[in-house]
Nucleic acid binder design. Structure first.
Length: 803
RNA sequence: GGGAGUAUAGCUCAGUUGGUUAGAGCACUUGCCUUACAAGCAAGGGGUCGUAGGUUCGAGUCCUACUGUUCCCACCA
């Protein structure tokens, strides 16, 4: 029996403990059920988890519950990504320290402590929202096991010549003082000025006009370009021009990258002002002139501006150009500038020795692999292909930071040879361990360890390899790869998805997963993105859960359709609370009649009972279809609207029968209610697992005999969707509805007794078969049904009550 | 500049392959304590489906153009 009231505050915790204790969500490696494996992106430990994260993880989690109920052996590990720049920034902020002021060891220890504390909170939060991951499969990317996999990945790439160490133009953040990858760039709109500057032609009084936004690069100018088709300036090619302020001469070259109608049509090339400069640098083997140092200050090359921040130098230089009559004009300009996504600092390009993974040479392959994966929703695939098609640089994976996975690499001090670790040494920290052997090239024994650490994405893009025990358990790995299902929000398609596809292909020749589910974002009330900097995440997930229950929170997470952003909406929480309440009450009510009922042979069914089963089957089919497309919100809509209809129409039609009728008539209703209610609870358990478990344990468990509702499986009912039958049943509901309307219009109670009800309908035959149910639901003494073109319902009289 | 999503009731959103009078929840109005639930039930008001064309017997749904909006990519001369 169910208690009168359901108290989520005590019961949710109770069931969460129950599930963990019983291992309800455990993957069974021995089972021969089909496997559904999930590669969930491990949340980055970079601060508090906001409501959008939980939203996204809930959506993915609904799918795993669905698959479990479909009879799959679900492999659903959860992990955290707890190394690299994002974590360092968190620790520095929280502790008020700067990594470079501390010893590596001290900083590392500090990071570990912080990470542990956060992960404890993260885990609690996930469990408190009813997440059904198998925590025995837990991993975190800074653990020795994951470090081993990341380093193993590096060694494998090295062996296959897919990773290289080279001095190349790299994107550089002067604030974080590290190289970063193209995928870590964001663009921001900034106001600046276009400065039109005179470059005098050698031995002439004439000059060419060059427009630039960054005159502080004048000291690093290598040459000037015009377009080869530019007839007006064809005579300039081969001549030299004088760089203003610095008064040295550079050649004028022609290159078709120059756009005629941009700026003045003449460009100065500096090393490096932008991406095009790096291409010209390579193509024309230009001299490297470094104007800006690692900290974003002008170098010696800048002369009197040395030591100034770039923007200060720019202002001074413009002033000086003005004074010397070299500045023609200035124009305001708004343009997109690349900034580092983590700190929003403007990007520089520096020539640096870094490790790169080859991505450019296989663009076609990446696209093919993208085609092999099923993207949901399908339109999100274009984010992937767009990104691949526009890749400009190989993936730079070395970071000049401290807390992360070290490269298993040393350099021979004598001959400079690169020495990589032996697999048996992994995980290895080259700062404290030496290679196993002398330098293979010169036999030397002096080694310079690689101090850099790997990009956080380089370590988190191996999650399918970690999960499937790559290079640890070959048999398991073979069985599990490619994984079935990957889910993430649309912001990390170009990083997590792309890099994971790249690495998995290099290592195992396959795609990492067969299906991808891309979730949307949660937007703040005004429709803007929730972000830490704006501090507009009004609702803290832990509070929302504590105040509304995990089930209600999860209900809210069904908002909207897949891949689309949703706005956080308090109303939806209210609706969820009502639903939970209704499910509980309906179950309690239904169970009154089903107590002691033993499901068995199909009895002779009354038309209304046939109707509700058929209608259920129709809804169930749609529900399954939506889930196949991971449309968890639309599936919920189907389920929910059926359920309210079930309560307000079906239950109302049969309840008097269940109280008063003969055994056969009762049994028909019981049969329908038992089947439909049980299946409804299973479906609801995907979304609101706590209340449904509470109900199941106190009701159906005695006849179904599984330890938890989560261990049950979906069943199809005996009557399949039948449009004609469904239409007829709805006619019966319409009759009842019209009578209710009559009573409402006349401001009398719905239980008011009627004398005679006169009905005409094209479905009179069917209505006659369920006349008793209609009579009961409308509380009429007599119902007369005859044939007619359209439905008409007439109340002939009301029985006057004495009270 | 290239691409994608989106535009339906005051708000948040459904509307499957084109098919009668366009739906739900919230909000609003009114009535009802009905042998589950007042966190409930019932009834109701409210929309020329972004604009303009087109295809069709028939368009919220398909096509074209435009407009608004959000996002991705490119654009730092």
């Amino acid at each position: 029996m169910l208690e009168k009231k359901y108290d989520f505050k005590t019961r949710e915790k109770y069931w969460q403990d129950f599930w963990q204790e019983k291992g309800t969500y455990k993957f069974d490696p021995q089972s021969n059920k089909p496997i559904f494996s999930v590669d969930t992106p491990p949340p980055t430990v970079s601060g508090k988890i906001h409501i959008g994260h939980i939203f996204s993880y809930c959506q993915a989690e609904f799918v795993t519950r669905f698959k479990r109920l479909q009879g799959y052996n679900v492999f659903y590990p959860m992990g955290f990504d707890d190394n690299g720049l994002p974590t360092e920034l968190l620790v520095e902020k929280e502790r008020g320290v700067k990594a470079y002021n501390l010893s590596r060891e001290d900083f590392r220890k500090m990071c570990m402590e912080t990470v542990e504390k956060y992960e404890e909170d993260y885990k609690k939060l996930f469990i408190s929202v009813g997440n059904s991951a198998d925590w025995s499969l837990f991993y975190h990317t800074v653990s020795p096991e994951c470090q081993r996999t990341s380093q193993m990945s590096f060694l494998d790439l090295y062996k296959k010549d897919k990773v290289y160490y080279a001095e190349a133009p790299a994107l550089w953040c002067t604030k974080c003082q590290t190289a970063i990858a193209q995928s870590e760039l964001e663009s921001e709109e900034k106001e600046t000025t276009f400065n039109y500057i005179k470059f005098y032609i050698e031995n002439s009084d004439e000059y060419v006009e060059i427009a630039t936004t960054r005159p502080e690069f004048l000291c690093a100018c290598d040459c000037v370009f015009v377009n080869p088709k530019d007839e007006k300036r064809a005579n300039l090619v081969g001549k030299r021009v004088r760089v203003p302020l610095y008064n040295y001469y550079v050649p004028v070259l022609a290159d078709d990258k120059v756009e005629l109608d941009k700026g003045t049509g003449v460009v100065m090339c500096c090393t490096f002002g932008d991406q095009t400069d790096t291409q010209w640098f390579k193509k024309y083997k230009l001299e490297l002139k470094v104007a800006i140092d690692d900290y974003g200050r002008m170098t010696k090359l800048a002369g009197k501006y040395e030591g100034m921040k770039t923007k200060e130098a720019r202002a001074e230089i413009i002033e000086d150009l003005k004074n010397q009559g070299l500045l023609i004009k200035q124009e305001p300009l708004t343009h997109q500038v690349f900034v580092h996504e983590r700190c929003k600092n403007e990007m520089e390009i520096k020539l640096k020795k870094q490790w790169f993974i080859k991505t450019l040479e296989n663009k076609q392959k990446w696209l093919e692999l993208g085609d092999q994966i099923k993207w949901n929703p399908s339109f999100m695939k274009s984010r992937y292909t767009d990104w691949v098609e526009n890749l400009m640089m190989d993936w730079c994976i070395s970071r000049q930071k401290y807390f992360g996975v070290p490269f298993p690499v040393w350099y021979c001090k004598d001959c400079g040879e690169i020495i990589v670790a032996d697999e048996s040494q992994l995980p290895v920290n080259p700062l404290v361990t030496n290679p196993l052997h002398s330098c293979p090239k010169c036999g030397g024994n002096n080694f310079e360890p690689e101090k850099d650490i790997m990009d956080t994405w380089a370590t988190s893009s191996v999650t399918p390899l970690v999960n499937t025990k790559w290079k640890t358990d070959d048999e398991f790995c073979k069985k599990m790869l490619p994984m079935t299902f990957r889910t993430n929000a649309h912001d990390i398609i170009r990083t997590w998805d792309f890099y994971t596809i790249v690495k998995n292909y290099y290592h195992t020749d396959t795609i990492p997963w067969q299906n991808v589910m891309i979730t949307g974002f949660v937007m703040a009330g005004n429709g803007e993105k929730i972000s830490k900097s704006k501090n507009n995440a009004k609702a803290d997930p832990a509070n929302v859960i504590a105040n509304n229950s995990a089930d209600v929170f999860r209900y809210w997470a069904t908002t909207g359709s897949l891949g689309r952003d949703s706005i956080f909406n308090e109303d939806k929480l209210k609706t969820g609370a009502k639903l939970v309440n209704k499910v509980y009450n309906a179950s309690k009510f239904v169970w009154q009649f089903l107590e002691g009922y033993k499901p068995g042979e199909v009895p002779t069914l009354k038309p209304i009972d046939r109707w509700i089963i058929s209608k259920f089957s129709q809804m169930q089919a749609r529900f399954f279809d939506y889930f196949e497309k991971y449309e968890i919100g639309l599936a919920m809509n189907e389920l929910e609207s059926f359920f309210w209809n079930f309560c307000d129409n079906y239950i109302e039609l049969v309840k008097v029968r269940l109280y008063n009728a003969d055994e056969d008539a009762k049994n028909s209703a019981k049969y329908a209610m038992y089947g439909v209610m049980l299946e409804l609870l299973k479906m609801f358990s995907i979304y609101i697992p706590h209340v449904t478990e509470e109900i199941y344990q106190n009701t159906f468990k005695d006849t179904v005999h599984t330890e938890s509702i989560n261990n049950t499986q979906f069943a199809t009912l005996t009557i399949s969707p039948d449009k004609d039958l469904i239409r007829k049943g709805e006619e019966a509901c319409n009759v009842v509805s019209q009578v209710r309307g009559y009573k409402t219009d006349n401001k009398v109670s719905l239980k008011t007794e009627l004398t005679t009800l006169k009905v005409t309908s094209p479905y009179d035959e069917f209505l006659n078969l369920c006349a008793d149910d209609i009579k009961d639901a409308t509380n009429a003494r007599e119902v007369v049904i005859s044939h007619g073109e359209n439905l008409s319902v007439e109340v002939l009289g009301v029985v006057e009550s004495n009270q």
